[in-house]
Amino acid sequence: MQEQKFVVSSSPHIHSEESVSSIMFDVLTALIPASVAGIYFFGYRAAIVLLTAVVSCVAFEAIYQYFMKKRITVNDLSAAVTGLLIGLNMPPSIPLWMVVIGSAFAIVIVKQLYGGLGKNFINPALAARCFMLIAWASAMTTYVTPFMGYGIDAVSSATPLAVLKGVSEGALPSLRNCFFGIKPGSIGETSAVMLSIGFIYLLVRKVIDFKIPAAYIIVFSVLTFMFGKTPYDATYTLYHILTGGLLLGAFFMATDYTTTPTTPLGQIIFGAGCGILTFVIRQFGGYPEGVSFSILLMNVVTPLIDRYTVPKKFGEVAKNVR
């Protein structure tokens, strides 16, 4: 045997297969069913919106990093995930230039100015959505009926949540249609079944944990069932779960690693907090929908939650003995 050069480093010497890009790839994969459903219901325009958002986010990240002389890290796919989430949160008829500006806001202001991947304190896609909701309120709340085509033919329509709240006139779609996604809404939020498929995929791949979504949906449902506009009405509660952005938010936005707590107890508190806030905004707030604001507000208190839910270390019980 010849004398060889060996790599010497600190243990451990093996590593799991998982990497940031593999996780982001899993999230993109998990969003495919909801994206396909959105394109199926709302036509080619939905595909163009999704594509615009993804391309803009990736491009803005690359451009920013190029000019700031940083390593260009778009191949970690995190910008693509942000882009796809922005796209899925858009009404199908949104003007594309607004999508481009929203994407720039998410990537440059919310993500990169705070230090890039892992450093942003709120979810970039949700921040962009709320920014756009305030900047272009009308374009962001004009929804269309599925299978109607676009342009002049497009029939704008109230979302089920607006109807439930009584702020808009219109007929409620059947619960069955809500479950499959045949209803007005953002591109990616309408189909409960497709979102659930993606969610289960992420659970199976162990990319996310069930704690936040479970706490979120359970707390929200219980509150709505007991204290909603029509208490103890299961149908009303089901409408609230299946419409709006609750499932998209609970499955894919409230589970964003960077902006949510890392401790098991913290994750339950985070999910429960989102549930309470969403209930309060939907029932008593000015907006028919409150998922985005709820998650953003809980993002802001995430560092605090983490600090107060530090797990008890192994063997801590004996602390007083010493």
């Binding site: 970690d76 991947l117 690693y257 960077t258 401790t263 994750q267």
Partner: peptide, 10 residues
């Protein structure tokens, strides 16, 4: 890559 706070270590 930077820490993305996935919490797997916790």
């Amino acid at each position: 890559s930077p820490c993305i706070r996935c919490g797997k270590c916790v």
